[in-house]
Amino acid sequence: MSLPSHLTIEIVTPDRAIVHETVDEARLPGAEGYLGVLPGHTPLLVKLQVGEIWFRRGNETTWLHAAFGFAEILPDRIRILARTAERADEIDLERAEAAATRARERLASTTSDVDFERARIALLKSLSRLQVARRIGMRSAGKR
């Protein structure tokens, strides 16, 4: 059986379809750890957690922030259903930083009326956003 040479990656959220591209390689934040996907991957249905989605086409790499969802992986395509997903250049750094600070404060507080689970998720999301946003910062710095 010949293996496909490329992957088609589709990322959709309830609001819009974000990505529809042909790529060589991708990495997803699976529920039980990051997983890399190459063309010819065995069919897999995986739950996603908060984290970064990365994919590469030739030398061109793209990072996205994604939170909660599912990915359907077939030998020649990846379909991702995400609750939220943002391209690195769409991320508002200041907002993400403010959210991270707020979430840390809430986690650090000792009163019992805090919803710790929500704060924890908020922190995870904002950290992931920051990480993704910094990736493109790093890359453009490297080019110079």
């Binding site: 699976g30 529920a31 039980e32 065995t42 069919p43 897999l44 249905l45 995986v46 739950k47 359907e72 077939l74 030998p75």
Partner: peptide, 9 residues
Amino acid sequence: VSADYLFEP
């Protein structure tokens, strides 16, 4: 035809 998935979880 090919969709005999593995699942995680």
